[in-house]
């Protein structure tokens, strides 16, 4: 019986959640066209944490926006849960680098925004927002407005707001890019804890190698002009324990390898 449950769990985790095949994106500009993405293929398994790492201008955010349905691909196929992405949907939650809190709503109302759109009753909404307020540690700020919060707290609200919608995947576009070093570190730990608890599939965009290695199970390294995937790196190496780096040698080796990839 237990084995059967385990087997089913494995099967679920092996399921491909995101499948991108030969994705290209060309932008028309005033003087011709600009190839932002060229033949990008990648996959993300269910409950997996995958980072897309690359320099600015490599099109990594474009991939995410196409996944979210906010932009259309020029060619190629983008599937989430076996369905072609046709436009934005609550099934694919997104956290942005800029603070996207609705400033006229309190923290709780922000978290309940998506639920309210779905027409959920207030009692049910409150149960869910209570749960996510606790998950991100903002119970005391439930009735505060955005202007009273720090940058890190705003991003915690953004994460809670996306997760409250119970999305199939969580897309994160350099969410900690604007935070100071200490806040960034505690947010990374928080995100990892949340991921383990919630078992959400996460695609994380960053240009920070340490961040990608700390958070993800797999990393896609990209280059710019045109945006292409250079290599897929296995990052599930038990480099960290309780947030501390334990295998310095292996960490440095992988990091050096990624640096050499990006230099080339």
């Amino acid at each position: 019986m237990l084995n059967a449950i385990k087997a089913e769990k494995n099967l679920r985790q092996e399921k491909i959640e995101i499948n991108i095949q030969n994705l290209s994106k060309v932008y028309k500009t005033n003087n011709g066209s600009f190839q932002a993405l060229e033949n990008v293929s990648l996959y993300v398994k269910n409950e997996e944490f995958v980072s897309i790492l690359g320099p600015s201008g490599c099109g990594k955010s474009t991939i995410l926006r196409i996944l979210a349905g906010l932009e259309e691909p020029t060619s190629g196929s983008v599937q989430v849960s076996g369905e072609e992405v046709k436009g934005p949907s609550a099934k694919r939650g997104m956290v942005f680098q800029s603070y996207t809190l609705f400033p006229w709503l309190t923290v709780r109302e922000n978290i309940e925004f998506g639920l309210k759109l779905k027409g959920m009753k207030q009692k049910e909404r409150k149960e869910i927002s209570d749960r996510y307020l606790e998950l991100v540690g903002l119970e005391r700020f439930a009735d505060s407005y955005g202007k009273e919060l720090s940058g890190g707290m705003k991003q915690r609200v953004a994460i809670a707001r996306s997760l409250a919608n119970n999305p199939e995947v969580l897309l994160m576009d350099e969410p900690f890019g604007a935070l100071d070093a200490q806040t960034k570190q505690s947010m990374q730990q928080l995100l990892l804890d949340i991921w383990k608890k919630e078992k959400t599939t996460i695609v994380f965009i960053t240009h920070d190698i340490d961040e990608a290695l700390f958070l993800s199970q797999r990393i896609y390294v990209m280059e710019a002009r045109p945006g292409r995937i250079l290599e897929e790196i296995d990052a599930d190496l038990q480099l960290f324990q309780d947030g501390e780096l334990v295998d310095v040698e292996k960490f440095m080796n992988v990091k050096k390898h990624i640096i050499s990839l990006l230099k080339h």
Binding site: A68, L70, A90, G93, F96, N165
Partner: peptide
């Protein structure tokens, strides 16, 4: 109004009218 605010609401399930 910052475009990301509109994008965020799309990914939370809002349609154009909303």
């Amino acid at each position: 109004i910052h475009k990301d605010l509109l994008y965020a609401s799309y990914t939370l399930g809002a349609n154009r009218w909303q």
